[in-house]
Design a protein around this nucleic acid. Structure first.
Lengths: 237, 237
DNA sequence: CGATGAATGCTTGTATGCTAGGATACCATG
DNA sequence: CATGGTATCCTAGCATACAAGCATTCATCG
């Protein structure tokens, strides 16, 4: 009763993701809420509450939470509660290392295999990113950022690497959402993207490697101050 | 009724894994059955049958299947059925690349950080592996193999890499189970392990890298003939 | 005889009731 | 007043009932 009544407003959101199962929809919604820091690290989640919010039963919510627990985005304590995971600094560092390693390893293949089609694709993504930047659309900016890195992997002939990087980088994404970075920062990141693409197209591997390495390092430099500023969002460990 | 009656025999198996939740137990059992090829690629699974076998309800079985689907070990077709995934050659190649890349990237750190304690640990695992080899205990052999690679990553200061490699390498493991390799093959692999440990201890990075690279390459060499011999176990893609 | 369609039995997806256990607040007792 | 026990409310885990969809099969009609 209360369930259906409360959920009516959210029904539209769910409907926007139709085509997939309810579980998949709920999973996406909760995941986005966590990564976008709408749901804060450490916050308690209730299967019942979530079910009410999304106007579904506990089952799909529960199944979505299981998947999120596998990704490390939530922690389930039996008979006690479910909580949004705090950000582990160690995890962030390690994920960055993994990502850097895999993307660098793929880069030589990308340089080798890049053709006119790949270049068009990359240029188009860069253009989209510039648009997003000028319109101040952060969400869209991050989306194009993902597109770029994924496309580079695909051009390198390693499409399966992305899902691994993607699921591992959830914590990284939350860090990225923290400071609502100033436009200047975004501009710098995009300039680096542009440089990487140029180097890859020009088949200048060492230069591309150097920029990519520096590019992924930036997220880490911002970590320490953020940890001091938002201590509640990080785990002690 | 029929459920509980049938399940009585399996109850002992489940009990052996007590301490974790039922869902986790069922997950482990099904996963092992898939990786060990007890459940064959392409085979249809039924939530009801599995629930009956393990003497539990559909719920924990279903939740375990969701997790296995995320790992790519099963494929769920809504309102139709759940199937053990066929082995994707592309996946196997890519996973090997990922694994090789990450382990190689960690190796310099391992060489740098290795100490007496780490060496003892590695030597002990090698000894266990030799035991397993002489007793012909394949399962134990693979377990020690995992121990060795994981320990190398831990010594390198990258413990979080293992879960990623581990979940990604499920397909690889199934390939490894296919030919029931002759003891000579095992012996060769173990000799390489031993060589890697020696080189790491001696802090001879290039030598260690070369052996590790060759070591992980072997699984790939065996792929083609296996694909021809067991075409039903591989996906077309 | 062939083709079409309805019925049936399977599947997974969702909803809901029930169980076991922990945390807390309150009341009784020393 | 302090302290301990108990009752209650919360949680997630599990079992079960119901709903929806696909595939096959069998019967009926052309």
């Amino acid at each position: 009763m209360a369930v259906r009544a409360l959920g009516a407003s959210r029904r539209a959101q769910v409907g926007a993701l139709r085509g997939a199962s309810t579980r998949a929809q709920v999973y996406q919604l909760i995941r986005r809420a966590i990564v976008s820091l709408e749901l804060l690290p450490g916050q308690a989640l209730s299967e019942n509450e979530l079910a009410a919010q999304y106007a579904v039963s506990r089952t799909p919510v529960r199944e979505a939470l299981i998947r999120l627990a596998d990704e490390g985005l939530v922690e389930v304590v039996p008979q006690f509660g479910t909580f949004v995971s705090r950000i582990s600094v160690q995890d962030v560092i390690e994920v960055r290392f993994i990502r850097e390693t895999l993307e660098l390893a793929s880069l030589p293949h990308a340089v080798e295999r890049i053709g006119p089609e790949g270049e068009r694709k990359l240029r188009r993504i860069l253009a989209e990113q510039e648009d997003a930047e000028q319109q101040g659309d952060l969400q869209q900016w991050f989306t194009t950022d993902e597109d770029l890195h994924r496309t580079l992997l695909e051009i390198g002939g390693h499409p399966k690497i992305w899902p691994i990087v993607s699921s591992a980088k959830a914590h990284l994404d939350r860090v990225r959402m923290l400071p609502m970075p100033d436009p200047g920062h975004l501009q710098e990141l995009r300039a680096q993207h542009s440089a990487i693409v140029d180097h890859v197209v020009a088949k200048d591997l060492p230069a591309a490697e150097q920029v990519l390495r520096h590019h992924l390092q930036l997220a880490l430099d911002a970590l320490k101050p953020l940890e001091e500023r938002f201590p509640d969002y990080f785990s002690e460990e």
